[in-house]
């Protein structure tokens, strides 16, 4: 059987190609990732593009991957994963969940227990949003330490979803870079600068000069906060502190990489 895939421009103005899964009657019930459809496909010289080759991948979970659980258990932060019995006390006490309903530590731990990467993948954009308040770890009746479990989750995401992290978390990585440069470069955090850079990175340049922002800038100029960093300069004996921090970050990176097996 000769299978031939080619992109649109090679089709040479054939018949119009439908959107992915467009012809499925109850399309709204099926997730995008579960539809397999080649826009342009020719089999044995017959054009079966679009709807002619549509497949719907089953939603049924067909295996538990325990190797994954073992991997998490070996890390320092994830060593207590075997304790979780899914009572939901972590999610109930979470300070982030009320803001992002999709951030659900209980469910993330369960997905890690059962090695359900397929499901975990859907939450890459929110899974790292733990602010580290440790309320969940205080509330947890089994001392799972969910707050640190979220760090284990970050390792998982880094290791298994490198592509998605690059695309979906691009902005966050960039802002993190600004933050780090600020700390290491000046030894102080300039919130105003961090705020404006983050807005610029996310393309909200217009809002930067909006009424609210203008007011805030004026206020900070007035009470002197805007100049405080310049006036204060770097902290005393910063170069040795800087060296220590850089050393630590370097080490952390190696640990993270070795734990995540990158």
């Amino acid at each position: 059987m000769a299978l031939e895939k080619h992109d649109n421009k090679n089709l040479g103005g054939g018949r119009p190609v439908a959107e992915k899964g467009e012809h499925i009657v109850a399309r709204h019930l099926i997730e995008d990732d579960n539809i397999k459809e080649e826009k342009n496909l020719v089999i044995d010289g017959v054009d079966v593009s679009g709807r002619w080759n549509t497949f719907i991948i089953s939603r049924v979970n067909s295996d538990f991957d325990r190797s994954f659980f073992e991997e998490i258990k070996k890390t320092v932060v994830g060593s207590r994963i075997n304790r979780c019995w899914q009572c939901g006390m972590c999610t109930a006490s979470c300070t982030v969940t009320p803001l992002y309903r999709r951030f659900n530590p209980r469910a993330f731990i369960y997905m890690m227990q059962l090695g359900n990467l397929k499901e975990l993948k859907k939450y890459i954009d929110v899974a790292w949003r733990c602010v580290g308040c440790y309320k969940c770890s205080q509330r947890c009746p089994k001392q799972v330490n969910p707050a640190e479990m979220m760090e284990a989750l970050a390792l998982v995401i880094k290791k298994y979803f490198q592509e998605e992290v690059k695309t979906k978390l691009k902005l966050d990585e960039e802002v993190k870079k600004i933050y780090e440069d600020m700390i290491i470069g000046h030894g102080r955090l300039d919130l105003a600068k961090l705020h404006t850079s983050a807005m610029q990175k996310s393309g909200k340049t217009k809002e930067l000069f909006g009424k609210i922002e203008r007011g805030a800038i004026l206020k900070m100029l007035k009470d002197g906060r805007a100049f405080s960093v310049l006036r204060l300069g770097k902290p005393h004996n910063w170069s040795s502190s800087k060296e220590a921090i850089e050393n630590y970050l370097h080490k952390l990176n190696t640990i993270e990489n070795s734990e995540a097996g990158v």
């Binding site: 939603r59 049924v60 295996d63 209980r106 469910a107």
Partner: peptide, 12 residues
């Protein structure tokens, strides 16, 4: 059915 994550499973 995995009632915690919702969704069917068929595990061998």
């Amino acid at each position: 059915e995995d009632t915690l994550l919702r969704g069917p499973f068929e595990i061998p």
